[in-house]
């Protein structure tokens, strides 16, 4: 079993901020826009170093998305920054018409996704954003798992021509993927080899999946773990190759089971090789106030929940 080490807890949003700082130095067409959350999105460095390329739009997300679409027409690569809720649900029609349907090269970068936003509660904890974004034709949807991967993804999406939704979060979490990794959009990362169950995870649930795999290993169960950072386009082959060996799957995400990664995986399996699946996800509910750990526990989004789901799905084979 491969060993993964947490090199020190860091927030994924800082990975975004540091990636953006890097882009500021290397790509003069990158512009950053923020709706009054510069500090929360860790965009201060970019703002300080490239004031002419930083656009503070105020609490006006609809205008920000429209402006971003317009910026691309002059060859700019806009990165918009606000919370996931205000990056998606609040501006869905603006994204749909001015960005996705218009085929504009806008990078919608969204922090504070999911329940791990914590104490602010359900108004700010969007659990529907992956679904909203993946339904838009032409939209690439990425949900990164740790600081290093978020930084690498931020840099990688600047080279991708087309609209991208990049989802990350607020809390400090394990940082375990390689520094300066080569981030390949649409390519699953194979973290553990296994033959008994496939755990297909995204975002903050990837580390939990690794912890779950260790627990399962102690019980003699070999779990395969895939890090699906790109939900759309989905790496169908990686998923199908894995379930060919394991013949059952657990999907894990900090999102509603309706519209999330789990449903995308279900479709691939249904079309190719119907396979028992359990969903570690929120159960069509809103979140609430609490610490991230409390909320992950209450809403069944941690390693324990993945272990239980794995045992259940193995029994269904």
């Amino acid at each position: 079993m491969k060993k993964y080490t947490d090199t020190g807890k860091k927030d994924t949003r800082s990975g975004f901020g540091d990636g953006l700082t890097e882009l500021g130095k290397t790509n003069k067409n990158v512009v950053a826009m923020c709706a009054d959350l510069t500090g929360s999105l860790k965009m201060d460095d970019f703002k300080e170093n490239h004031p002419e390329r930083f656009f503070q739009v105020g609490i006006a997300e609809a205008n920000m998305i429209g402006m971003a679409a317009g910026m691309t027409i002059g060859g700019k690569i806009p990165f918009t920054g606000t919370f996931a809720n205000f990056s998606t649900g609040r501006v869905y029609d603006q994204i749909r018409q001015s960005v996705a349907y218009s085929g504009k090269n806008v990078k919608i970068c969204a922090s504070h996704a999911g329940v791990t936003l914590g104490e602010d509660g359900a108004t700010h904890q969007i659990l529907e954003d992956i679904g909203l974004m993946k339904m838009l034709p032409g939209m690439t949807v990425i949900n990164t798992c740790d600081y290093n991967q978020t930084k690498a993804a931020t840099i990688a999406i600047a080279k991708h021509d087309g609209p991208v939704y990049l989802r990350f979060g607020r809390p400090k979490v394990a940082n375990f993927t390689p520094d300066n990794q080569d981030f390949k959009i649409g390519k699953a990362v194979h973290l553990q080899e296994g033959t008994d169950v496939s755990i297909v995870a995204t975002g903050h649930l990837v580390w939990e999946a690794l912890l779950a795999a260790e627990t399962l290993n102690e019980q003699g169960i070999k779990a395969e773990v895939l890090n699906i950072h790109t939900i759309k386009p989905l790496d169908n082959k990686a998923i199908l190759d894995s379930v060919k060996k394991t013949r059952c799957v657990v999907t894990a995400e900090e999102h509603n089971y309706l519209g999330g990664l789990g449903e995308s995986v279900s479709r691939v399996l249904a079309e190719n090789t119907p396979t028992p699946q359990e969903f570690v996800a929120t159960n069509d509910t809103f979140g609430e106030s609490g610490t991230p750990e409390q909320l992950m526990e209450k809403y069944g989004l941690n390693a324990d929940a993945i272990v239980k789901a794995a045992l259940k799905v193995i029994a269904r084979k």
């Binding site: 609809a62 429209g66 402006m67 679409a69 317009g70 910026m71 691309t72 603006q94 018409q97 349907y101």
Partner: peptide
């Protein structure tokens, strides 16, 4: 240069193009 139809989005797009 942009899709329009759902109303109210053109000034924002124009501002972005103007800033570019």
């Amino acid at each position: 240069r942009i899709a329009s139809g759902s109303l109210g989005q053109g000034i924002s797009v124009s501002i972005g193009a103007a800033q570019a």
